Simulated assay, not measured.
Amino acid sequence: MAIKRSEQIDSENAGYYHLMSRCVRRAFLCGVDEATGISFEHRRAWIEQRIVQLAEIFAIEVYSYAVMHNHYHLVVYSNPLGPCQWTDLEVADRWLRLFPGKLNNPQLKHQRALRLQAIADDKALLAEYRHRLGSISWLMRCINEPIAKRSNQEDCVKGHFWESRFTSQALLDEAAALTCMAYVDLNPVRAGLTDSLETSDYTSIQSRLNAISEAQLNKALESLAGKVRERTMVIPLKDYIELVEWTGKTIIHPNKAHLPSRLLPILQQLNINQASWLNQVNHYERNFYRAVGPLDLIRAYAERLKLKWLKGISNIRALYLTTT
């Protein structure tokens, strides 16, 4: 039985989430439809651009994404109470950036300023907008609705473009987030679409590689877009790239690639079992369900949802070096 989205996603505490939305029609979201020969590749750029754009508006950080032929994956760090720290005018400005209507016209600068002040003076409206700008459900809605409208218009059709519910998975610690990020970044490799990270089109790992600099390589892994907290991940960017690259090579050529010895301490620091890492990333979607994290956090998550059992406990034990 499906669980309410409001119960799956913590509305009071910040955390990582894996989100996925799938196209409902036979026609491709992106790629080339073999039945008609029509290419929809340009829609991948629509989604990628929309994700980055919304990260600067919502209280999220984007860590990983992959836009596939009929679905996309997204790993975010969400702070639902982040908008409470924003000024009234900042909330109003972000909302008008999200839904500008005709007010994005430079000639209507004065009208936009008046609307901005009107929102800032309406406490009830501000409270509602703060809630929405911290909501993952509203984030996914604001990604999907414009894409659906543009795609339907392009296809000259009406009706649903996306499945009614996006899937959400709680990533309860940094190790879980890192494992999911690698799974998302390697989607094109796992699907047999490419054999390298550089040619993994419309993925966060390709975006990172395209914008990389020597200085960034030695820094800790940061979000690709959005900023809602001061800290970064433990793992350096260069180590994350090397870890994902090794994992991808091993998926393509089992038993031929060896984990660089300097990465082992990083996995140990994150409490990740190196012997189980490859299996957990390669079969992530099959191995894990509503939440990923150490057992104590999994138990607390299940208790909050009033569940006695969660799928994937054996794989949770395998992913971590030590569990409690």
Rank of each mutant, 00 (worst) to 15 (best):
T232C: 14
Q53L: 01
N70I: 07
D10N: 15
I205K: 00
D10F: 00
D195P: 00
K123T: 14
F166I: 14
R190I: 12
P146Q: 10
R44T: 04
T250L: 03
P236L: 06
K308F: 07
E242P: 04
T199M: 14
N287K: 07
H110G: 09
I119E: 09
E174L: 10
I9W: 03
M140N: 12
S164M: 05
Y77I: 03
A59E: 05
A45T: 09
N210V: 00
Q216R: 15
E163S: 01
W246D: 06
L89W: 05
I205Y: 01
L193E: 15
L116W: 03
R290H: 08
P265H: 08
H160I: 05
I251S: 13
G37C: 04
A127V: 08
W309C: 13
A59Y: 01
I316C: 07
V244F: 06
N255E: 15
K102L: 12
S135R: 00
T199N: 15
F58K: 05
T87G: 15
T247S: 14
L259Y: 00
K149W: 11
Q111E: 15
E128Q: 15
W309N: 15
V75K: 03
T194V: 08
I119F: 04
P83N: 11
L221H: 09
L321F: 12
V32D: 00
F40P: 01
L310E: 04
S64K: 07
V228A: 08
H253W: 04
K227I: 05
L116V: 03
I60Q: 06
G15V: 06
E214M: 09
L237G: 06
